[in-house]
Amino acid sequence: MAEKHLSHHSQSPEKNNNEDVNSMKGTMVSVGFVAAVIVVMWVAVFWLYMARV
């Protein structure tokens, strides 16, 4: 389902096939998620620490 939806965006797969194969957008989104987890968890504990000062 999600796959269909996503491929819908790149209308002509043949034209930008090569570009798409070498894309690193997904990697950047994924590491962005890693950074978000790090920041959210750290800020949550920091907030708890400050609330208890």
Partner: peptide
């Protein structure tokens, strides 16, 4: 090293440095 990997390492190391600066 790929340019995007450099970007990632700069950003993530930057986050660690900010944490260290705060504490």
């Amino acid at each position: 090293m790929h340019r995007l990997e450099e970007t990632w390492l700069t950003v993530s190391a930057g986050i660690l440095i900010i944490f260290m600066f705060i504490v």
